[in-house]
Design a protein around this nucleic acid. Structure first.
Length: 605
DNA sequence: CAAATTTGTCATAGT
DNA sequence: CCACTATGACAAATT
């Protein structure tokens, strides 16, 4: 009922003062609709993606950096069948308590998988499985390895940072990549100090290990070589479950057998590092790109600087999160999706509070609110200030002004006033008062002018902000014509809508700002994670090299019954979970490696 | 004066 | 249903 009358009233109102609007309306949704919308859409889309592309490019670069650690593939070796395979086996079984530990496969598989390229050098199975993989009881997947390494790395980080800065300040020529590809055929002299072992890229960093290496106890020359964890405890603990045998294969210790065994110092670690890590990295990147991996992100988040915007975000709109969002557990992952929703919801909730205040109270409160917004939020909120100021009804002085104005204009004819109001009637030079009136006129909104024209006996402010009851009361107090009543209703409607629009825009802006901040935060997080990844890669590399050199050191010093060194192509060292190291025939190791090559894949999928 | 921004309105949908 | 609020779209008003 009332509504219909409103509608009719609206038309009446238009007749009174806004004929324009009707006219415009005709072509409003035709031309403008199409043109402007299209333009807007295009513009916006251009802007955002641009930024994204930039970021992406940056990240890619970083990734590229990571990628540098790709080991150069060294084709290589050959497996040489040990002559006395049977003997070896027997021996092994006899000595090795865990002989055919079922656990192997896991290890091998992980290693193999991690280092597909390296582990499959032509003809040579580098993955010698440690028969004593007792340490690893649970299947060892990449993730686990990764985590282990991470934790290890952390421990070593200090060590490394302090003791071997050299490594960190890796030599020019991209040591990262070079280090992995060990020159296969470099002869290694026992006498030659290990640091100088010409293991290709390895050599660069050798100096680092020298201290440790030199202090290494020389192992006795027995077939089975139980190595007691020396000072390299970290290594042992770190790689206890890792099979070292196939990894470091000093191709030609003492120049023995340098032919058959192609050059290959396949190192599981390297593979791990390179392939697996890269895998992870790419995965992470993917995850990040898509919306951030909640688990990793949050983990890392907690570990590292918590200055991320996420925290800010939560603080910013806590109520909304708790109330509307509910589950905020998946902070980051949901942040992208939730940020839009949460942002909007948070914004709406927070604003609803403000809005409620603003609406129910007068302009003064509103002013305060606006000011608060400007201060509390982003600089851009200054806009809001302006917005609010421009709303005449919100000028605290207005009520008073309005009264004055009303008094002045009451005598004038509505129609004349309405039209005359818009163009400044400055022609009436009547002194300062007149000018003041002009000024006031300018400050008045269209509806106020109309109200004046219709001789509405109360302020627009009241019309708009009074609660329904009071509003109706007010109306009932006066004898108002239909035109006046309709005008009043329109004024109320428009006024409310005006405020609603302002709030809406405010909210919208706020949402955008929140999203922008979220984006920044996420970008920052991503960059940080990438940085960390690189750091971890470096640490891993160092570890790998250390282990490698140790392997060579140990292997190179082993002597058989005749006092001769073992051929790296025929024997390999295996690291057991309990920290011991075994010398086993290559063939055996290869077999084991093969056996377990399949399992992992199946298991993985 | 034109282009870019702000604001006010309207129509609608939703509360 | 009423009275409002929220929001997209348009156009007038401002910058």
């Amino acid at each position: 009922m009332g509504w219909e009358s409103h509608l009719t009233a609206a038309s009446a109102d238009i007749d009174l003062g806004a004929g324009r609007e009707i006219f415009d309306y005709s072509h409003r949704q035709k031309e403008q609709d199409v043109d402007k919308e299209l333009a807007d859409g295009v513009e916006q889309e251009d802007t955002w993606p641009g930024e994204g592309a930039e970021v992406l490019a940056r990240n890619l670069l970083v990734d590229g950096e990571t990628g540098e650690s790709f080991p150069a593939q060294v084709p290589g070796g050959e497996d040489q069948t040990a002559l006395s395979l049977e003997e070896c086996l027997r021996l092994l079984e006899a000595t090795c308590p865990f002989g055919e530990n079922a656990e192997f496969p896991a290890d091998i598989s992980s290693l193999t998988e991690a280092v597909p390229s390296e582990s499959e050098p032509p003809g040579l199975q580098n993955n010698l499985l440690s028969p004593l993989l007792t340490g690893t009881e649970s299947p060892f997947d990449l993730e686990q390895q990764w985590q282990d390494l991470m934790s290890i790395m952390e421990m070593q980080a200090m060590e490394v940072n302090t003791s071997s800065e050299i490594l960190y300040n890796a030599p020019p020529g991209d040591p990262l990549s070079t280090n992995y590809s060990l020159a296969p055929n470099t002869p290694i002299n026992q006498n030659v100090s290990l640091h100088q072992a010409s293991l290709g890229g390895c050599s660069q960093d050798f100096s680092l290990f020298s201290p440790e290496v030199e202090s290494l106890p020389v192992a006795s020359s027995s077939t089975l070589l139980p190595l007691v964890p020396s000072n390299s405890t970290t290594l042992n603990s770190t790689f206890s479950s890792t099979n070292l045998a196939g990894l470091f294969f000093p191709p030609q210790l003492n120049g023995t057998a340098n032919d058959t065994a192609g050059p290959e110092l396949p190192d599981p670690l390297g593979g791990l590092l390179d392939e697996a890590m890269l895998d992870e990295i790419s995965l992470m990147d993917l995850a990040i790109e898509e919306g951030f991996n909640s688990v990793q992100a949050s983990q890392l988040e907690e570990e590292f600087d918590s200055d991320s915007g996420l925290s800010l975000d939560s603080s910013h709109s806590p109520s909304s999160l708790s109330s509307s969002e509910g589950s905020s557990s998946s902070s980051s992952s949901s942040s992208s999706s939730s940020s839009s929703s949460s942002a909007s919801s948070s914004a709406s909730s927070s604003f609803s509070e403000e809005g409620a205040v603003g609406y129910s109270s007068d302009s003064e409160t509103l002013d305060l609110e606006e000011a608060e917004g400007a201060v509390g939020y982003q600089p851009e909120y200054s806009k809001f200030c302006r917005m609010s100021y421009q709303d005449p009804s919100q000028l605290s002085c207005l009520p008073y002004l309005e009264h004055v104005g009303h008094n002045h204009t009451y005598n004038m004819a509505p129609s004349a006033l309405d039209s005359a109001d818009l163009p400044p009637p400055s022609s009436l030079k009547k002194g300062s008062k007149e000018k003041q009136a002009d000024f006031l006129d300018k400050q008045m909104s269209r509806d106020e002018h109309r109200a004046r024209a219709m001789k509405i006996p109360f302020t627009n402010d009241k019309i708009i902000n009074l609660p329904v009851e009071e509003f109706n009361e007010l109306l009932s107090k006066y004898q108002l014509s239909e035109a006046q009543l309709s005008l009043i209703r329109d004024i109320r409607r428009r006024g409310k809508n005006k405020m609603a629009a302002q709030n809406c825009r405010k909210r919208k802006l706020d949402t955008i700002l929140n999203l922008e901040r979220d984006v920044e935060d996420l970008q920052r997080d991503k960059a940080r994670l990438l940085r960390e990844k690189v750091e971890f890669l470096r640490s891993l590399r160092q570890m790998k090299q250390k282990v490698q050199s140790l392997y060579q050191e140990v292997f190179g010093r082993l002597r058989d019954e005749n006092g001769r060194p073992y051929s790296p192509s025929q024997y390999a060292l295996q690291y057991a979970g309990d920290g011991s190291v075994l010398l086993i025939p290559r063939t055996l190791a290869d077999q084991q490696a093969r056996r377990q090559e399949r399992k992992p894949k199946d298991r993985r999928k």
